[in-house]
Write a protein that binds this DNA or RNA. Structure first.
Length: 257
DNA sequence: ATGGTAGCACGGCTA
C-alpha cells in the first residue's frame, strides 16, 4: 500500500503533473495540499477515471486539501475546530482501517508576523484535536505540508533560518508535542545519504543549488510504523516536464506492508 | 540592492 503526500501549488496549474504522477507512481492514497480550488471546481474525473475515491475540502484562491484513495473513504472530516479560522487546511478520512489526516499547516511568514501567531495557534489546536481523537495504539497517519523543518539537516542553511518560521524553536516545540502523542516520522530513517529536501523556493534557482527544506512529512502511530517497508521523496517531480513548471514541493511517500 | 519566482486574478497578497 503506497501512500503519498504532495503540495501541488494549484491543482489547476498542475493537472498534467498529477495525471503523470498517478499513472507512473500509481499511489494507493494520494493526499494533496494547496489545491487553490473550490471543492466543486476540482477535476474529479482526473481521479475517478482511474478508480480513486475522493474526500475534498477546497477553497478558492488559497489552501484546499484533498485525499484520493483506491479504497473507499469513510468518516470524512473537514476543518480543524478552533484552529484554521475558516481556511481549508485539514481533511481526514479512514482508508482500509487507517485514519488519515491530510494537513496544510500555515507557513508563518516572519517571526513578528500575525501569520506566525496564527501558525502557533493552529498547532495548538491540532495538538488538542489529536489528543482528543488519536489513540496511539490504533493506526493513524498524520501527513502533509507541515511547514516545519524538524532538524538541522532538514534546512539547507540552519544559520540563515535561525529563529525564522519553518525552523523556529517554538515550532520545534510544537513538533515535539505531536511526537509525544505517539507519532513518529517514518520517512526520515529512509533518507540515508545527502541532503534530502521536499521543498525548494522558486526564487534564486534554489532547486538547482539544492537549497531546500524538508517540511512535508508523514507521521504515524506504532501499528502503522510496524508496517512501513520504505519511505522516499520523488525529487524528479520537482523538475520541469515538457516545458511546464513544477510545484515548489516534491511528493513524499511511504510503502506499507 | 529587503532582492528572487510562481499562482491567483488583474493589484497585491501569499508562499
Amino acid at each position: 500500500m503506497k501512500i503519498v503526500t504532495w503540495n501541488v501549488n494549484s491543482l489547476k496549474a498542475r493537472h498534467d503533473y498529477v495525471e503523470g504522477y498517478l499513472d507512473t507512481a500509481k499511489p494507493d492514497v494520494l493526499c494533496l495540499q494547496e489545491l487553490k480550488l473550490q471543492t466543486d471546481a476540482v477535476p474529479r474525473e482526473l481521479f475517478e477515471s482511474r478508480g480513486y475515491h475522493l474526500a475534498i475540502h477546497g477553497q478558492k484562491q488559497w489552501n484546499g486539501v484533498l485525499i484520493a484513495s483506491k479504497s473507499p473513504l469513510t468518516d470524512v472530516v473537514c476543518g480543524l475546530p478552533g484552529g484554521d479560522e475558516g481556511e481549508s487546511r485539514l481533511v481526514a478520512a479512514t482508508v482500509d482501517g487507517i485514519r488519515i489526516v491530510d494537513l496544510y499547516c500555515p507557513q508563518g511568514q516572519t517571526e513578528d508576523s500575525p501569520k506566525f501567531v496564527f501558525k502557533l495557534r493552529f498547532y495548538a489546536a491540532l495538538q488538542s484535536w489529536l489528543a482528543e481523537h488519536l489513540d496511539p495504539a490504533s493506526p493513524w497517519i498524520v501527513l502533509g505540508d507541515l511547514n516545519i523543518a524538524p532538524n538541522e539537516d532538514d534546512v539547507w542553511s540552519p544559520e540563515a533560518f535561525e529563529n525564522v518560521p519553518t525552523f523556529h524553536p517554538k515550532e520545534h516545540e510544537a513538533w515535539a508535542r505531536l511526537c509525544a502523542l505517539g507519532l513518529v516520522d517514518v520517512v526520515r530513517p529512509h533518507l540515508t545519504t545527502g541532503r534530502h529536501f521536499s521543498f525548494w523556493d522558486y526564487r534564486g534557482a534554489a532547486f538547482r543549488f539544492n537549497q531546500g527544506m524538508r517540511i512535508d512529512h508523514i507521521l504515524v502511530t506504532e501499528p502503522v510504523r510496524a508496517r512501513v517497508r520504505s519511505g522516499w521523496i520523488d525529487r524528479d517531480f520537482r523538475k520541469k516536464r515538457d516545458g511546464s513548471k513544477a510545484s515548489d514541493h516534491a511528493p513524499v511517500g511511504i510503502e506499507l506492508e
